[in-house]
């Protein structure tokens, strides 16, 4: 039996059958030595690899700790920002003086966001409501919201007409909005005697007056998008009329088949339940929306008012 045959056999044969030449013995020696060397090389390689892995895990642990720390700081910051944004929303002492019953829902997609509504008083003492949807989400939208609130606070007591108010703010804010590449969908309603005067630029609104639906007419412009005039409209209101104002968060949300919730569905639902209390209507609309949508895709604001 030759060395190669011997090495290829499954079990070592008896020494009596084994004829190893000197040459084969030498080959066997070097084969053995070669395997030993390979083994040592492999050992060194795997030792170095293991050491590197240990080091890498240690580094990962350190980075994880660092990330946790940074994440905690960001969370703390966002919590503070959330509190600040909440404080920028209206307190309802003013609402008590308003000639309507109100229910509202506002949810920002992140801790802070770009949906915003507010109560104002105009020059002649009319009550007004503004519903705003700032493009984008999160901290940047919240900062713009703070800017917007200050602009409205400065101007509202000097003017009465929604058109004049929005055009004024659009004119002075346009360079700012252009620079930050953002714009705002707005719905501003001024409550006059038995009439509402509204300006709808990208927002959504519906008045159920005397049992009939009046969908808000829209401007083809947004606040901060471009120069130009805006149009305002008036509608008569009676006791018990219902006003529904909202941003696109609900109506553009999609179900699992990518169908939009739609303006039609929300308006129809509010209309069907128009005789209920505003808080009940709000709840019905929200439950229907939650059952429909796969997940929230945007900030959400829905206000329902009964005159």
């Amino acid at each position: 039996m030759k060395l190669d045959e011997f090495l290829e056999s499954r079990t070592p044969l008896l020494p009596g059958n084994f004829n190893l030449t000197h040459e084969e013995l030498v080959k066997f020696f070097w084969k053995y030595k070669g395997l030993q060397l390979d083994f040592e090389r492999n050992n060194t390689f795997w030792k170095a690899t293991n050491e590197n892995l240990t080091l890498a895990y240690k580094k990962l642990d350190e980075q994880e700790k660092e990330l946790e720390h940074v994440y905690r700081l960001i969370q703390e910051d966002l919590n503070v920002a959330h509190g600040i944004q909440k404080a920028l929303f209206p307190t309802f002492s003013r609402e008590k003086n308003m000639p309507f019953e109100l229910a509202f829902y506002n949810k920002q997609l992140d801790q802070v966001g770009g949906d915003y509504f507010d109560f104002f008083t105009t020059r002649q003492g009319y009550n007004a409501i503004g519903v705003f949807d700032i493009s984008g989400h999160g901290v940047s939208a919240a900062l713009i919201m703070a800017y917007l609130k200050s602009q409205f606070m400065l101007i509202m007591e000097n003017l009465d007409s929604p058109r004049e108010i929005i055009e004024h703010i659009n004119n002075i804010s346009l360079p700012f909005f252009k620079r930050i590449k953002r714009y705002v969908a707005v719905n501003l309603v001024v409550f006059m005697n038995n009439v509402i005067s509204y300006l709808c630029a990208g927002g959504f609104g519906m008045l159920i007056h005397d049992g009939k639906i009046h969908t808000f007419k829209k401007n083809h412009n947004f606040l901060g998008l471009r120069k130009g005039s805006f149009s305002e409209y008036t509608l008569p209101v009676l006791h018990n009329d219902l006003l529904v104002l909202y941003t696109d968060g609900i109506v553009e949300a999609q179900d699992e088949f990518q169908n939009d919730y739609s303006v039609k569905r929300l308006n129809k639902l509010a209309y069907q339940h128009r005789n209920k209390r505003v808080s009940e209507i709000l709840n019905i609309c929200l439950q229907d929306y939650i059952a429909f949508r796969r997940y929230d895709q945007d900030d959400i604001t829905l206000l329902i008012l009964r005159f």
């Binding site: 060194t44 390689f45 170095a48 050491e51 080091l55």
Partner: peptide
């Protein structure tokens, strides 16, 4: 930079 014993790695 990654390995404390880079010699064995570079050989491999």
């Amino acid at each position: 930079q990654s390995y404390t014993n880079a010699d064995a790695i570079l050989t491999r």
